[in-house]
Design a protein around this nucleic acid. Structure first.
Lengths: 335, 335
DNA sequence: CTGTTAGCGCATTCAG
DNA sequence: CTGAATGCGCTAACAG
């Protein structure tokens, strides 16, 4: 159960250091001894003690990954990408969940630091940018699915403005003029930059089409499904007619869909609906939801690659990813 | 950045051992020295080196958690429960993702063992029961959301048979006689016990109601959404009439819903639909899906509590959880 | 290429 | 209650 490097050294008739060298290939070892070591290792089922390794080497060979919600399909794609991107390396990801609560996030970050991770990947989240900036001075750090204004070369994300612009324009091209937008409460401090970008993309598309954005067509939710229901209720309450809704995320689009259903408003016959994120169930909404897909897996891979670059001293190569409009049946040409 | 116990010992004018004792409270320390130590700790922002701690103590103070899919709402609930259950303790969870692939699961398990976790919680998965049995001999181990026949006192789960029985009976009570069932391919080896239990619960409910189960009303999917679409296609292709569908999980129910929609079959007017798992989007399906909720968070908490019991030498207290039928608009009384 | 010698930072005996 | 001494298992200089 607890066989040490010492024992396999004895069994292989070499010194402990030679075993260490053979195992991690930090220096040449004669073929004969190498073989002897390997035999002993398999014979005794030797497992190096990670703590001793880390203590002696000063490296933990782990990458801390702070995510916000293990249950989110979008983030899950990113995590999968990170997993894949780290596969070939000798680093292992340490996942912690911030649950979108800034207190928990900070505690989780501290935990990662206490665990001496060699690098940190932050997926979304609300940790203030200054704090991340400071952290980046101490450790290799990459942020995914969130744009850092002061650290652009450390963030992997898509251009949300552009994506929202396209989504809105798609509706415009289909003849819609009165397009409502469900955004999120911007007072929820930071990290809502993405949502703000989407809002701005929406507005710009309108003005570019010669339409004056109407504040009565904009409602705020909190990114949860239930808030999408409320958003539509508010919208209907205002009495301002609209033929389409562009929601800043799919969750709220689902809620909106339900509210419309409850009011007997048909989708897409009466109102067209567009979401954002392409969550798994978007394709199974009735009718299937038109939405914007961010290349989650690819972004995760890019983040892993970037952190590995940082770790090996190379300058990381982060690219701006493009989002893709996924056209489904929830949009109909305005008659 | 790297302040050691030695330095704070000097600053506090005590020996390193006293610092250690003060910090972890393994033995009494005079109030005066205790205070001096604590002051030094905060002054120098001391962070104990976890590797040195673990190396010296032989404990890692971590619990390995093997899950199958970070993106699943149901599993996410369990993870949240585990997180909460471990909160008060000094243990920290180490999450690994098996991705429902037995090879990856085993590698992940090995990784946990290499990392010297003090205990293991397994969430679902397909690792063969014998292997788990063997593992349980070596380390504290708890399995959630999966029934181990040979280790019942180590598994936290709900009675799927019972739950499926109730769900089916609900349909029967609403006047349905021709109830189809979407199950999963049982050849996919292990861990499908739950699905099998659901299938058996369905059959038993029928026979108890004096109805002979009709194989033509049973189709197999693979638990993914897309397979629900195919399942309904097959069902329709068989030409055997039915007025309700009970799917073994929500994912397939979503797919089934979409297939019905494509065929112009209304839910619940023409066909009633029942799922299983109460995934987040079930409440936002059109119409909202009647389904079965397993108390995920509670199960996670119970698992955490049980592993903590195991760790402290107590015999774990695992209970059988009850599932709850969540009644929504997707079921209509058969006319 | 290889064995020997020192620690890595902390917990834990063992003597006081 | 406290300090000194020892070792956890491994890596990394250091000399050959």
């Amino acid at each position: 159960m607890k066989v040490t490097i010492q024992e396999i050294a004895e069994k292989a008739n070499v010194s402990p250091s030679t075993v260490s060298r053979a195992l991690r290939g930090t220096a040449g070892v004669s073929a004969k001894k190498y073989q002897a070591v390997m035999d002993a290792v398999t014979d005794l089922d030797y497992r190096p003690n990670i703590f001793a390794q880390s203590l002696a080497s000063g490296q933990s060979m782990t990458i801390g990954v702070l995510t916000q919600n293990f249950g989110s399909p979008f983030y899950d794609g990113i995590l999968r990408g990170i997993l894949e991107g780290l596969e070939e390396s000798n680093y292992w990801p340490l996942f912690v969940d911030g649950r979108w609560q800034i207190i928990i996030e900070q505690r989780a970050l501290n935990m990662l630091i206490d665990r001496r991770v060699d690098g940190i990947i932050i997926v979304g989240g609300q940790v203030p940018e200054e704090m991340l900036h400071e952290l980046a001075m101490q450790k290799p750090l990459i942020v995914v699915a969130r744009k850092l204004k002061t650290l652009p070369e450390r963030s992997v994300y898509v251009d949300n403005f552009e994506a929202a612009y396209h989504a809105t324009r798609y509706l415009l091209e289909r003849g819609h003029r009165d397009i409502a937008h469900v955004t999120a409460d911007m007072n929820n401090t930071t990290a809502i930059d993405d949502i703000l970008d989407r809002y701005n993309g929406y507005k710009r598309a309108l003005t570019d089409a010669g339409i004056e954005p109407d504040p009565r067509l904009v409602v705020e939710g909190n990114l949860q499904q239930q808030s999408g229901v409320l958003a539509v209720e508010m919208l209907l309450g205002r009495g301002r007619a609209f033929s389409a809704i562009f929601a800043a995320n799919d969750q709220m689009a689902f809620g909106a869909r339900l509210a419309l259903y409850r009011h007997g408003i048909r989708v897409p016959d009466d109102v067209s609906l567009v979401g954002f994120d392409d969550e798994a169930s978007a394709a199974y909404m009735i009718p299937p939801l038109t939405t914007v897909r961010q290349p989650a897996v690819e972004m995760g891979q890019a983040a892993a690659k970037a952190i590995l670059d940082l770790l090996t001293g190379n300058s990381p190569t982060v690219e701006l990813f493009d989002a893709e409009l996924i056209i489904r049946e929830s949009v109909m040409r305005f008659r």
